[in-house]
Amino acid sequence: MARFSVGDRVRVRAVFPPTPPTHVRTPYYIRGHAGVIERICGAFGNPEELAFGRRYGPKSTLYRVRFRQADIWPDYEGAADDHIEIEIYEFWLEPNERENAA
């Protein structure tokens, strides 16, 4: 079951695993940032396990999350309405309590 629904406000966990040996599909530049669930892509094998040949763990729900460019890059020079959308696995997301309470 997907923990989040389309439109939910979420935050990417600000976790910076030591390297190596890790395999992470959440780009560094997006960690810690707040966005909105754009769509649910389905359940997929966890690449952080698959990378080490561990193929039988639980699947993770994959989301596409939408972020405002101006929130990510303080010096962003494009339009205020420019966005970036990224695929992020559920275990990298947490509810954005601050925003949801407001």
Partner: peptide
């Protein structure tokens, strides 16, 4: 980080009132 600048280098000028939406293909899509 600077999609409009990169697009301009490809000869593509996107009007300021048109959203530029970048899609980072990080996983299974």
């Amino acid at each position: 980080r600077e999609p409009r600048t990169v697009l301009r280098e490809f000869g593509t000028e996107i009007a300021g009132d048109r959203e530029v939406r970048v899609h980072d293909s990080t996983a299974d899509m």
